[in-house]
């Protein structure tokens, strides 16, 4: 399972990176979103998979999965949401004001 997850993580990172390197703003945002998923899965995999029950002490299990990565991922999800929202608004504002969503044309002047 861990091996499979590692491969999936690699694929998600590769796809996300390729999207980030493209010129369209929307593709870049989608790329960051995909990389975010990759990071979350990476954190989860690092803690070990299916080592026990969910980390709820009320359940009658003896072993639990590692709760720390889960807490970190929870934080990551929410921050990812916040940055994605900000990025989205920033990009469509840029498009409306400047009339282009091509990163290459957003570069400004040569002497900057």
């Amino acid at each position: 399972m861990e091996t499979c997850m590692s491969i999936i993580i690699g694929i998600l990172f590769a796809v996300g990176t390729y999207l980030i390197l493209s010129k369209t703003l929307l593709r870049i945002i989608l790329g960051t979103s995909i990389i975010g998923h990759g990071v979350n899965l990476l954190l989860l995999t690092m803690g070990g998979l299916k080592k026990g029950g969910p980390p709820l002490l009320g359940l009658n299990t003896l072993t639990f999965t590692d709760p720390l990565p889960q807490a970190l991922i929870l934080t990551a999800i929410v921050i990812n949401f916040a940055t994605t929202a900000l990025f989205l608004v920033l990009s469509y504002r840029a498009y409306k004001v400047l009339g282009t969503d091509d990163v290459e044309q957003l570069r400004g002047y040569n002497d900057e």
Partner: peptide, 8 residues
């Protein structure tokens, strides 16, 4: 869900 992380 499958990996026992209900909160997530």
């Amino acid at each position: 869900v499958l990996l026992r992380a209900p909160d997530l």
